[in-house]
Simulated scan of single mutants.
Amino acid sequence: MKDKDKTSQTLLLIDDDPNLILLVKDYLEFNGYRVLTANQGMEAIKILEEEIPDLIICDVMMPEMDGYTFVKEIREDSRFSWLPIIFLSAKGQSKDRIKGLTQGADVYMVKPFEPDELVAQVNSTLSQSNRLMANNFRKTDHTPKIRVPKSVGLTPTETKVVNLVAQGFSNRDISETLGISQRTVESHVSNMLNKTGLHNRTELSRWVIENELV
């Protein structure tokens, strides 16, 4: 499995409209996310075999494998079943929303949508997902604890950054909260990963939560 950018949360965007892919990808990247893309479900499954994102944004109506079928397969695979999923669809009636949510999506958004609304939904869904994972870490005694050298020390700013990472904040959110640039946030996260020997933001969050640093 390929290493992903350790400092940014990764999204998988699936849609058969190349123009939408370009526009949404650019907007999400501008907001600090790393974005993988696929034009239909089968291609997305191949990507998942190589790399697991933090969240999936999926169109409903696609050739070969539609969004419903894709999500059904994801929810039945223990490797991916926990992934938060946002559905995008041109169908906006109540019955369509209900079907999308009952089929396994966490959020159902109707096209056309404002890019800012999508970013807000991504931020909110990731934060909720991180809170649930944090709660599970606290409740699960048999989960192996994250091992970090006892000599590791964090600067005051790193401590503030890592606390916000553990709460599910994106780099952009952290930047705005602390009044520093996104590049500085990424630098702090990268430094902390190097200090601790951890591999990604999820492990960093677990370390903070397990050691009650938040």
Rank of each mutant, 00 (worst) to 15 (best):
D5A: 07
K6V: 14
S8D: 04
Q9W: 02
Q9V: 08
L13D: 00
I14C: 00
I14Q: 00
N19L: 09
L20H: 02
L20K: 01
L23S: 07
V24A: 01
K25T: 01
K25C: 04
Y27Q: 05
E29F: 03
F30Y: 14
F30M: 13
F30V: 14
Y33E: 05
T37P: 11
A38V: 11
N39I: 09
E43F: 01
E43K: 09
A44R: 01
I45L: 15
L48N: 04
E49N: 09
I52Q: 03
I56D: 05
V60Y: 01
M62H: 02
M65C: 07
D66K: 04
D66F: 01
T69Y: 00
V71G: 05
K72D: 11
K72M: 12
I74H: 03
D77Q: 02
S78H: 10
W82L: 10
L83I: 11
L83T: 10
I85Y: 02
L88S: 02
S89F: 02
S89G: 12
A90I: 06
K95R: 14
D96K: 11
R97I: 13
G100P: 06
L101T: 10
A105P: 04
D106Q: 05
Y108C: 05
Y108M: 03
M109F: 04
K111N: 06
P112D: 00
P112I: 03
F113V: 08
P115V: 03
D116C: 02
E117Q: 06
V119F: 00
V122W: 01
N123P: 09
S124H: 07
S124E: 12
S124K: 12
S124I: 08
T125Q: 07
L126E: 04
S129D: 13
N130K: 11
N135P: 11
N136M: 15
F137D: 15
R138E: 12
R138W: 03
K139N: 13
K139Q: 14
K139E: 13
D141I: 15
D141L: 14
D141P: 13
H142P: 15
H142L: 15
T143C: 15
K145A: 09
V152L: 08
G153W: 03
L154H: 04
T155A: 07
T155F: 02
T157R: 11
K160Q: 14
V161Y: 01
V162T: 10
A166V: 14
G168F: 05
F169T: 08
F169Q: 10
N171M: 08
R172H: 09
S175R: 05
S175M: 06
E176N: 15
T177M: 14
L178V: 09
L178M: 10
L178I: 10
G179A: 02
I180H: 08
S181F: 01
Q182V: 09
R183I: 15
V185K: 01
V185I: 10
E186C: 15
S187R: 12
L193V: 08
N194S: 15
N194T: 13
T196M: 08
T196K: 10
H199E: 12
T202M: 13
E203W: 04
R206V: 05
W207T: 03
V208R: 00
N211H: 05
E212Y: 00
E212W: 02
